[in-house]
């Protein structure tokens, strides 16, 4: 069948976006990313969007599909198109450079702000290391989820708190903070605690939980945020 796609367009350097509808022949198995490829190859060679792995591991192709952030490569096109015209927009809470390409600068600034790296006083590796001795099962599960994060910015795009407060670092950076905060090898523990409780930090999350719904890797950012919040309140008491 032919699917109809109503797509956000914006030329680089121009402020006024417009919308354009494309009809694309769909075959079973086709993903929304493959629809973009077809539009670029057959209808408009200038149509811009990001892609790399097309296997849901690189985090390049997140857009909003019918209003909700998702990876284009991980979304089947046919079932959506059968329900009507599919609306495609760039990610929210980020400026748009061109067509579906969002400007990630503020996303990476939030990421960098949590010092997203392990800092160890001892400049060596661990020959022997028992994770299970240092973290409980729930913490280990959430740590593993944090490692899964592909930094696609779906959570950032659809975070209502970030939409109303641009100081809030957003779910992704909060997950990163959590990841190093609970890492027993890390030596910036108190700095990370201060960062989490400062304005715009993890504590400012309003628990809308959109991040949990839209995350394509089931990272569950709100759960990571709640771990940090709980520990902060425990240490304050």
């Amino acid at each position: 069948m032919k699917g109809r796609f109503d797509i956000f367009r914006k030329r680089a350097g121009e402020s006024d976006p417009y919308r354009q509808e494309f009809e694309v022949e769909l075959i079973p198995g086709m993903t929304v990313l493959e629809v973009f490829h077809a539009i670029q190859a057959e209808h408009d060679p200038s149509f811009a969007y990001r892609y790399s792995c097309r296997g849901a591991i690189c985090g390049s192709c997140a857009v909003r599909i019918n209003g909700t952030a998702a990876l284009a490569c991980k979304t089947q096109a046919l079932p959506l198109a059968e329900q009507g015209t599919v609306r495609i927009d760039p990610l929210g809470n980020l400026p748009t450079i061109k067509d579906l390409v969002a400007d990630f600068d503020i996303f990476w600034e939030a990421y960098d702000s949590v010092r997203p790296y392990l800092e160890r006083a001892e400049e060596t590796h661990d020959d022997v290391m028992f994770w299970a001795d240092k973290l409980d099962a729930k913490q280990l599960d959430q740590l593993s989820r944090a490692v899964d994060c592909i930094k696609c910015a779906s959570c950032f795009s659809d975070c209502p708190k970030r939409a109303e407060d641009e100081n809030f670092i957003g779910p992704q950076a909060s997950v990163q903070l959590f990841k190093f905060y609970i890492d027993p090898r890390d030596d910036l523990h108190s700095m990370r605690r201060d960062a989490a409780s400062s304005p715009g930090g993890v504590v400012d999350c309003d628990s809308h939980a959109n991040c949990v719904k839209v995350c394509p890797k089931d990272v569950r950012p709100l759960r990571a945020i709640n771990f940090v919040k709980k520990e902060l309140s425990a240490t304050q008491e």
Binding site: C53, G55, I57, C58, G59, S60, F104
Partner: peptide
């Protein structure tokens, strides 16, 4: 040509 974390090593 992509952001570093989008590199194919990640796959």
């Amino acid at each position: 040509k992509v952001h570093p974390v989008r590199s194919h090593s990640g796959a």
